[in-house]
């Protein structure tokens, strides 16, 4: 890695909300959470509803103050305004000024980032093309669909060439095709050296595009590491075939069954017989991991038997 400064560095972040009730009532949204996103990486933050993903992102953007711990973007603390120079943010369920058109919205946010004149106009056209909203450039956002809002949100997050993009559920409410486009866009950002952190409930997509994944549960990081290490299930082998005929599949199953029969007749059973778990289209295993990791108790410990062995560094 040529750039040593991590794009994101969150250290021991804790965020406690004080809810305005009569009795002192505190909600701990994030507890002692640490994560680092190397420059150029795509990081996926996953976790059930209310586990503190959005809160973490808001702290990262200086919208919330950490109760303890710190967050930094390219080495600059999030409390500093200039740390925002390098980052684009798409909030969850983004909502923009309804009375502005798509182009006006981008112009507004572009100006806030210091763009103007011909450079701004060019960038607006570029962004509208990127998110496929050229046809709606002069329509008011009040008339945009949810997916269109999400896309204009993405465009406004990218308008100032940020080196880091923070996407809070970028594909929420977007149809499968649109969702796929957003996925491609994120990969395209990566190919241009832009770091991305995203939260999502679409684990399949996270698995497809992320280099590193963190699973948060009730505010704590319960599993973290390079995706490939996390989802490797060592005692399973997946065979993916193209254009397989039913006859071929039947023969494979026969082979497996034959071997299993062989082992069982060997009586001793020194080794386990192979068995067909399933044959079909590859299914996400991140989903399985997710469910396992987030079913534990408050401390987020998962039953040992279900934990896949990981080679990568794991926080906590």
């Amino acid at each position: 890695m040529t750039d040593a400064t991590p794009a994101i560095s969150i250290k021991n972040l804790t965020k406690v909300f004080r809810t305005p009730t009569v009795r002192k009532h505190f909600v701990t949204a994030v507890t002692n959470l640490s994560l680092e996103v190397a420059s150029g990486q795509i990081y996926g933050l996953i976790g059930p509803n209310g586990s503190g993903k959005s809160t973490t992102m808001k702290v990262l953007l200086g919208l919330l103050k950490p109760t303890s711990g710190s967050a930094a973007i390219f080495g600059r603390d999030s409390s500093r305004v200039d740390s925002r120079n390098d980052v684009g943010f798409l909030p969850e369920n983004p909502y923009f000024y309804k009375h502005l058109t798509g182009a006006e919205t981008l112009a507004f946010y572009g100006k806030l980032c210091g763009l103007q004149g011909a450079v701004l106009r060019e960038r607006i056209a570029e962004m509208l093309a990127l998110v496929d909203l050229e046809h709606a450039r002069d329509r008011r956002l009040g008339g945009y669909s949810k997916g269109m809002l999400q896309r204009i949100g993405l465009a406004q997050a990218l308008i100032h060439h940020p080196r880091l993009v923070v996407l809070d559920e970028p594909t929420a409410g977007v149809d499968p095709a649109g969702s796929r486009k957003i996925r491609d866009l994120v990969l395209d950002l990566k190919s241009r050296g832009i770091s991305v952190i995203l939260s999502s409930h679409l684990l399949e997509q996270v698995q497809e595009i992320c280099d590193r994944v963190g699973i948060v549960f009730r505010g704590r990081m319960v599993k973290e590491g390079p995706l490939h290490d996390l989802i490797a299930v060592e005692d399973q082998t997946e065979i993916v075939l193209q254009h397989a005929t039913p006859a071929l599949l039947a023969r494979i199953q026969q082979l497996v069954a034959a071997e299993a029969a062989e082992i069982t007749t060997e009586a001793g059973q020194a080794r386990l017989a192979a068995s067909v778990v399933r044959i079909g289209q590859p299914r996400t295993t991140l989903e399985t991991l997710f469910l396992q990791a987030t079913q534990g108790d408050d401390r987020g410990e998962t039953p040992a038997t279900l934990t896949p062995t990981t080679g990568g560094p794991s926080h906590e």
């Binding site: 890695m1 190397a38 150029g40 100006k111 210091g114 190919s191 050296g193 832009i194 280099d211």
Partner: peptide, 22 residues
């Protein structure tokens, strides 16, 4: 994975002004 891409493509830091008329 991530170190496949050189960071040369990263845009340089833009100057940031505390007060901006724009």
């Amino acid at each position: 994975m991530s170190d496949r891409m050189p960071s040369a493509a990263i845009a340089p830091l833009r100057p940031f002004s505390r007060v901006s008329p724009l």
